[in-house]
Write a protein that binds this DNA or RNA. Structure first.
Lengths: 226, 226
DNA sequence: TCTCTCTCTTTGAGTACTCAAAGAGAACGG
DNA sequence: CCGTTCTCTTTGAGTACTCAAAGAGAGAGA
């Protein structure tokens, strides 16, 4: 059994790998800062994980998950996201705090409990932030959503996913009414000024920098209900 | 914050103290075997916990919880039992396995999540084994139940609590129909032969040794419904 | 009282994880 | 092409927890 620490490293490695351009190895430094440890700690941990067959690691060449490591990371991710959804849907916890609660719980959920949760929630495909939930065998739905920084302007869009999951950011998103499910329209976008103006539910207008807008993924909205 | 290990020691110390005759200190050896560690490990742990103000410990005189330690132990117990009830009531997990699942989960439940669970379950007073659930401020209901080894014979009784919570024993209890809530009657009891015969729901008869019978607590049953 | 035995404590060592700080490669600017 | 700089690795040490085995107290039986 992998310890919580090992699970955290694998999960973090997976996330960093995803967020950086695919197919490349993750530099130790980036992994270390994502884990909140000094580089030396990450180095020795990666050696241990390489010995355990969970990562592929060569000195000064960065790390990547081995197939087994990736499978384990996806399993942790599945637990994390199902727990998040459970906390919101069943316990009614605040959308913005479930991420850190799930970080704790994800290491204490047995397969038995996990599949009961999955059943209770109706085998959901996405968590409350719009992140896809891996299936038990580790396959994954990655819809082709675009961000508010790149989607067509003037067209009704539906918010599908929030990439940045820090509490402050999620609370900001909440206040702006930009939760997944919200119907929005990009009214204008100005690359030089680095801003965009978003109409939320046709009424309120929010002004976002393009960096912020790129954290919010949308899809073409279903036709209006009126 | 107390580590899971520390929480486990406090919880175990509380349980051992309860099961041995009150008011006395717990010998290191008993604590060690209850924790599944060698005595030396328990000794050094108790020194550390004494330094932290969680237990009172003097060399060769045994240990007891300090007021702060007891409060913490009760908090862990509250988490454990609420989680157990949740696993049975909401997730539909098997009654006999929830104990070990809860041992894992009890260390990963924040107060925020705990109180939501409590709300969802309607502030329950007993867990699925009939163990009382401490309140958030650490008070405790300990009803005066008697065991099947000592209760009056020939009188309708209701099973209230199962003390031994090992999986095998719980599965045995389940098979005999002796879960909390069951209506039973002690038909006979023989101290010399060390057996008792129990009528379950007026039909099936189970034969239990007095040691086994003493693990099952009952209360006078409400008047028959017919 | 003496000694045997039992329990408890101490000591030394190992695993998992961490940091600080020194040392080694690699890359980049001149 | 050489030195500065950045990143990575190594080393030494510390915390939390564990065991094995040796040593110490304390009571029980002769």
């Amino acid at each position: 059994m992998a310890s919580s620490t090992v699970e955290d490293y694998l999960k973090t490695l997976y996330a960093v790998h995803q967020s950086s351009g695919e197919a490349t190895n993750v530099p130790i430094g980036r992994l270390a800062s994502a884990m909140g440890v000094v580089p030396g700690t990450a180095t020795s941990m990666m050696k241990a994980l390489a010995d355990a067959g969970l990562v592929e690691y060569a000195s000064r060449a960065g790390v990547r998950l081995s197939p087994r490591g990736e499978q384990l990371a996806l399993h942790v991710l599945r637990r994390h996201r199902i727990v998040e959804l459970f906390l919101v849907e069943v316990l009614g916890l605040d959308w913005s705090v479930v991420h850190e609660e799930a970080d704790l719980l994800e290491h204490a959920i047995s397969d038995r409990v996990l599949e009961k949760l999955d059943l209770l929630l109706g085998s959901p495909r996405f968590d409350p932030h719009g992140d896809p939930i891996p299936t038990p065998d580790g396959t994954f739905e990655e819809p082709e959503w675009v961000s508010l920084a790149t989607c067509p302007t003037g067209v009704r869009q539906q918010v599908m996913r929030i990439l940045n999951q820090q509490i402050d950011f999620l609370q900001f998103v909440e206040r702006q009414g930009l939760r997944p499910g919200a119907i929005v329209k990009v009214r204008s976008r100005d690359a030089d000024a680095d801003t965009s103006t978003i109409l939320v539910h046709g009424r309120k207008a929010a002004s976002l920098s393009l960096a912020v807008a790129s954290q919010i993924l949308v899809a073409a909205a279903p036709s209006p209900s009126a």
